[in-house]
Design a protein around this nucleic acid. Structure first.
Lengths: 117, 117
DNA sequence: TTGACGATTCTATGATTCTAGAAATATAGA
DNA sequence: TCTATATTTCTAGAATCATAGAATCGTCAA
């Protein structure tokens, strides 16, 4: 991932409303959620909502598809993975000590103690 | 990690200059770097530099200590790990599919193909 | 104590971002 | 076609952020 894209993705997530939207979509899975349902869930004005969805889209963190009158948004898991990979890649440069606990965190099986995954 | 802190950390990193500083410090390891050396490496005005260091500090991503006339900054690896953990925790909610490649990414031994770590 | 140096804080200006109302666009159904 | 619904785009004011010069603070060495 390029630095510019990483900055844009980090900026998109650095907003309480957009972080809420993103987490909602990640929880919603591949089928996604309609823009209206997202707005209802996060209690935001439609136009504000739409602006935030655009920002997340442009950062590549979510995708959209039309279904009738609704537009369905879903999380772009690949991009999420790339972003985390980018951050982790940097974290290892001169000090692999941080890698170990991170690897432990990620490789722990779902349902293990202290994990929601 | 609390959402507010996560937003603040993401916001701190969502800036090219600050991302550069942070990556530099992560590479510098636990001994850190003096503010002046960072400014020289990133080619920034002293006051701009200082403002950015303050923002990263307040987000908990870096720490500082005085050494004579210099102030030495170093990356807060724990906070970095917590932030990644927070993002990963969310990514697993309803769709563990993303966990697997992430775990692979993180648990891959340093020096493996396609990894800088 | 004085001077030099490293760094921060103060300050003001310019740029960007946030927000939501109003208008416009796209689709479905009668 | 006409109407209702879902969503986006347009717009402008308010708020926040970014930047760097100038002044200040803390430390060291002579």
């Amino acid at each position: 991932m390029e630095k510019t894209l990483a900055v844009s993705a980090l900026g998109a997530l650095a907003h309480e409303g957009r972080l809420d939207i993103f987490r909602l979509l990640v929880r919603a899975g591949a089928e996604g959620m309609a823009a209206g349902d997202i707005a209802r869930a996060t209690d935001a004005a439609a136009s504000t909502q739409s602006a935030n969805l655009t920002i997340l889209s442009r950062a590549g963190l979510i995708m959209s598809r039309r279904a009738g009158r609704s537009i369905i948004y879903s999380a772009a898991y690949d991009q999420m993975r790339d972003l985390l990979g980018f951050l982790m890649e940097d974290c290892c440069g001169g000090n692999p000590a941080i890698c170990a606990p991170l690897a432990a965190l990620a490789s722990q099986p779902c349902g293990a103690e202290g994990k929601t995954c």
